[in-house]
Structures are given as C-alpha cells and as structure tokens.
C-alpha cells in the first residue's frame, strides 16, 4: 500500500454504521408488517390491476429507502386497449 493511500484513505466504519442504521430502521418496520412504502406499493398495484390487465414485464417499481425520506416510483405502460380487456 503506498503511503498516500495509507494516510489519506477515508474510514469505512462510519459508512457501515450509517447504512446499517437506515436499513434496520426499515427492516424493523417491515418485520411487523407496517412498512408504509411496501404497503403503498402493493396497494397501488392492486388498484391499477382492477382496471388494467397488468403485464408484469411492463411494470417498473423502484424504491429508494432513505434515513428521512423514502421514494416510491411506479412506472406502468398502459396500452390503449388495456381498459377494454380488463372490463
């Protein structure tokens, strides 16, 4: 290891600590089934499935869990004739 890296390498433990804190905050919630983001994801998809026949290939769900804020993005391709099929 060269000297520069030895002296200036940033510490990795704080990153480990922070990642764990965020992850576990979410996992503890989902363990008792009260994780809002997961609930929302499932309910949104259920509501949409009531109206549109969902092609799982065309559904793109992204979640990003943060310490203060989480985001949920549901991106669904709805073909023009989808409504008719479901009805």
């Amino acid at each position: 290891m060269n000297l520069r890296r030895f002296f200036f390498r940033s510490q990795s433990a704080p990153a480990a600590r922070e990642r764990l804190q965020v992850l576990l905050a979410h996992e503890r919630l989902s363990a008792n089934g009260s994780d809002l983001v997961t609930k929302l994801r499932d309910e949104i998809l259920r509501v949409i499935a009531n109206h549109v026949q969902l092609d799982s290939e065309k559904v793109n769900v992204r979640m990003e869990r943060g310490a203060q804020v989480s985001t949920l993005a549901v991106d669904i391709e709805i073909p023009l004739d989808a409504g008719k099929k479901a009805a």
């Binding site: 510490q11 990795s12 433990a13 704080p14 480990a16 600590r17 764990l20 576990l24």
Partner: peptide
C-alpha cells in the same frame, strides 16, 4: 482496526 475507523466500534454496534 476499529481505532483506524475500518471496523465498526463497540459503541456503533451497541447503539444499533
């Protein structure tokens, strides 16, 4: 290693 900041410290684990 914990002192160098490359391993979680005792207090980190205890707090979590």
């Amino acid at each position: 290693r914990a002192e160098r900041g490359d391993m979680l410290k005792v207090d980190d684990v205890l707090e979590i």
